[in-house]
Amino acid sequence: MRAGVLRTGALSVRHVFSVRVGPVGFRIGSDWRAPIAALERVYAAYPAPHGGIADFSVRLFAARPWRRFVRPAVMIGGDYVLPEAAPLPLAQGLLAAEMGMNLQMALGQRHYLLLHAAVVEREGQAMILTGASGAGKSTLAALLSLRGWRLMADEFALIDPRTGLVHAFPRAVSLKNAGVATIAAEVPERRLGPLLAHTPKGTIRHLIPDTTAVAKMDCPARPAAILFPSFGYARATRAVLPSEVFVRLTQASTNYVALGERGFDTLTRMVTTLPAFAIDYPDTNTAIDQVEAAWAAL
């Protein structure tokens, strides 16, 4: 982890923070101090990018110079950007930084096949939890990390096309809405980021990954199973056919098309070798129980 002030004349990027999460280095520059201070706290235990060279740059900047001070609104920029992304209020600067990092990965990452998924690991074996937003991936991954599993990822599973291994990308876990209270009841205050209310995704609070997640983030794992959790249904577990898994994973990937043949080969190998289960659950305790049962049956 490294923070500092970089000046290059009139158009300076005022505040800079560099961090490595798993194999990926980020450089985050900001017109304001507050988002950088939040990142410094959340990522205090993380190292700097390898050799001080970041894979991706993210910028948080004011749309107009005066918007640094008057109703400050944070625009998200970087190596890769989406046109017409809406700005966020300064109080949600940490969320803006996280979204900026996600964007670089989603649009720029070509080393790994990316799956929008949470990943937990036990005994060198990884379980991939994927599904639509609101399916409960983050809450489930956070809870599993409090029940003896290693948290490998909350947002993106990084699959190496060369080896088929999943690499850890343990960013702060983005807890949303009901998930915030569920996790807050189980962890000390120092493990949580600031409460971000009224964001475009509702209430958000970040869980700071535990020391094991950070200490072991350079250890990849062998994928062992794919789970598709769905929150809000009666308890049910069913096996998912490879054809359906394939379609769901292409939808869950941000760079499947861009990787071309490598993406197809990687996904085909996963789909034909890994068991997959859909898990419907009415509450998180039931879900944990179902995950453990699925794990025991592997």
């Binding site: 280095g25 894979d55 861009a258």
Partner: peptide, 17 residues
Amino acid sequence: PAQVARILDDARTSAAQ
């Protein structure tokens, strides 16, 4: 540097695709 080699290698693969 190793980290640069990785970034450039990805860029070459990406351009080829």
